Simulated scan of single mutants.
Amino acid sequence: MIHSTLLKNGQHAVSRWKNGNGMTFEIAISPEGADFSKDPFLWRISSAVCDRGGPFSSFEGYERYLTLIDGKKFNLKFTRTGHETPVEYGKVFDFSGDDGVTMELPDGPVKDLGLVYRRDAVSAGFHVLEFKSKPRSITAEGRTTFVICMRGRLHASIYPGETKFKLTPLDAIRIDCGRNEEASILLEPSGNCAACVIEIE
């Protein structure tokens, strides 16, 4: 059975970083109710407000996706190779949680959106969709799909069932499809907006 859930921005769990450099808003985690700081987990979707640069936490055995949703840009510097990658709005960057990584903020504070998932148990996709005026339709099939509003306002309709949602920034819809089930998701923008689509199976 296809099941869809609205996750409102104001309901996300909030935690301050131990180093004081930022704040994290947890959108979803599996298993549900896991304590990210101490419990084993399969995957986690979260957004962070980063006030100052600094090292990322290490996640051995995990893969990571990251994108910028507010601010000009940030740089990721990899300790082992010294390689530095700029991440700008709408660009998706993926990297290993095994890597030592430092975030640098050349243009001030930023807000990001990311996924951390265990590479030996989960496969995942992470995409940014830009809207101007035309609606777009996506398909969720046999997996868990999240649609997260990054900017502006979105109207989402889930079929079958014609369940409707209104999304503002950092609101999310979770759509769970069983094996051999398929849902169609119609996304209709109100003006200029953007969304992140995350697929997990």
Rank of each mutant, 00 (worst) to 15 (best):
A48I: 04
P109S: 14
G152H: 05
C149F: 00
R16I: 14
C177L: 10
P106F: 00
A28T: 09
L154E: 04
F165G: 14
I173Q: 00
W17D: 15
I45D: 01
V92T: 09
R151Q: 15
K72F: 06
Y117E: 04
L66Y: 01
I27M: 04
A172T: 06
P169E: 12
S4N: 05
I27N: 07
A140R: 11
S46N: 13
F126A: 09
E32C: 14
A195P: 12
I2V: 15
G125K: 11
C193A: 06
L170K: 13
V116P: 15
L6A: 11
I69M: 05
G20Y: 07
Y159S: 08
G20T: 12
D176M: 12
V49A: 15
T5K: 06
V49W: 06
D39C: 13
M103V: 12
F56D: 05
A28C: 05
I198C: 08
L66C: 06
C177H: 04
G125V: 10
E60Y: 08
F131N: 01
P86F: 09
G10I: 04
S133H: 12
D107Q: 07
L68A: 08
T85V: 14
V14E: 15
R52L: 01
R179I: 07
A28D: 15
S37T: 12
E188W: 00
L113E: 08
F41W: 13
P109Q: 12
R143C: 12
G54C: 03
D107A: 11
W43M: 03
P106W: 03
E88L: 01
F41Y: 15
L187D: 00
I185R: 03
K18M: 05
R16E: 11
D99Q: 12
S46E: 08
A172L: 10
V197G: 01
K8L: 02
E199Q: 15
L105N: 12
I175Y: 11
K77I: 10
S137C: 13
Y62N: 01
C149M: 01
F25K: 15
S133P: 04
D39N: 12
C149E: 02
I175K: 03
Y117W: 08
G97Y: 01
G71A: 03
G178R: 01
D70T: 06
T144E: 08
F36L: 09
P106H: 00
W43Y: 11
I138T: 11
T144F: 14
R52M: 03
D98A: 13
E26F: 10
M23C: 14
L167K: 09
R80G: 02
A156V: 07
R151T: 01
I2D: 03
T168M: 15
T5G: 03
L113S: 03
I27C: 01
A183Q: 07
L115K: 13
D176A: 13
K77C: 07
T85K: 12
I29H: 14
L42T: 14
F95D: 05
Q11C: 05
Y117N: 09
L154W: 08
Y65D: 09
L7H: 04
P135Q: 08
C50W: 05
G142I: 06
A183V: 10
R136H: 07
V122E: 09
E63S: 14
L76N: 03
L129S: 03
I2W: 06
R119P: 02
R80Y: 09
T81W: 10
K111N: 08
N192R: 13
D99V: 04
N180A: 12
G125Q: 13
K72V: 05
N9A: 11
R143E: 10
E182G: 04
I185C: 00
